[in-house]
Design a protein around this nucleic acid. Sequence first.
DNA 1: ATCCAAAGTTAGACAAATCTAACAAGAAAA
DNA 2: TTTTCTTGTTAGATTTGTCTAACTTTGGAT
Lengths: 140, 140
Amino acid sequence: MDHTKLSQSLEDYLEMVHMLRLANGIARVKDIAAALTVKMPSVAKAMIELKKLGLVTQEPYSGVELTEEGQRVAAMILNRHILLKGFLIKLGVSEAIADKDACCMEHILSAETLGKIEDFMKPAEAAPSPKKTKAVKNKK
Amino acid sequence: MDHTKLSQSLEDYLEMVHMLRLANGIARVKDIAAALTVKMPSVAKAMIELKKLGLVTQEPYSGVELTEEGQRVAAMILNRHILLKGFLIKLGVSEAIADKDACCMEHILSAETLGKIEDFMKPAEAAPSPKKTKAVKNKK
DNA sequence: ATCCAAAGTTAGACAAATCTAACAAGAAAA
DNA sequence: TTTTCTTGTTAGATTTGTCTAACTTTGGAT
């Protein structure tokens, strides 16, 4: 419920759970650790926190799942990441660096700044971009 | 010498020492604390670290001074701050928020991203530059 | 069916950054 | 000069996030 004060670190873990589930269908502790370049016990501790906050669930010795709330928060963070990465690339930053810097920026920028960056990106993404939960009701 | 690994926190303290000296001629512990919204003992501890790193000096119970190296590093951080704040304002962010967000961004962005932001700002600030062919002064 | 390696967990150490409380020094007032 | 207030310092507790080492569990190879 009160995810309003997620630390940068916990945001990173939550986002990574989401990304791994999107990519592999499952988020294993080992893979989270590898992706974030930390050791498995760090992941375990982070998962304990995220469970306390009601954002993830996990049956012992298995993959991490997202609660509905966790899904919501993770998607929000990931959207910020995608927005910022695209923004940096538009400025001419290389993809790898854009990804890395977006990863830092996504935790600290104010809503106002994010909004302005969105505005800045708007005109450009007026193309056939299969965006997510936007007003784009795709035609199946 | 080896300031390459200044933590975000220490960068903030160093920058604030510099700003207060520019504004008031002196950086007092009390004012640093107020400006960064921390308590005085936190400042004292940070100053101990910055002294160890050879970036500041201080006679007991008096204002904090910058070493030559400290001056150099602080100026670099402040320049980043100014660049980023201007950048955000150019995107339409309000001044107060631009200042706050610049303060976070200044510690995390890669040299590449900072360079691209500089490029982005260039055309606009083409005022007092007689002949700056390629004034590359980043990186050490 | 048993064993073993890989994956996950638990316990505890450590570092960074903050705080509160208590103490010390300097300046200002009396 | 002596007292008092402000400023600065020191000591130690707390929180967060990381690590290593040691353990437990799972599941595949034998």
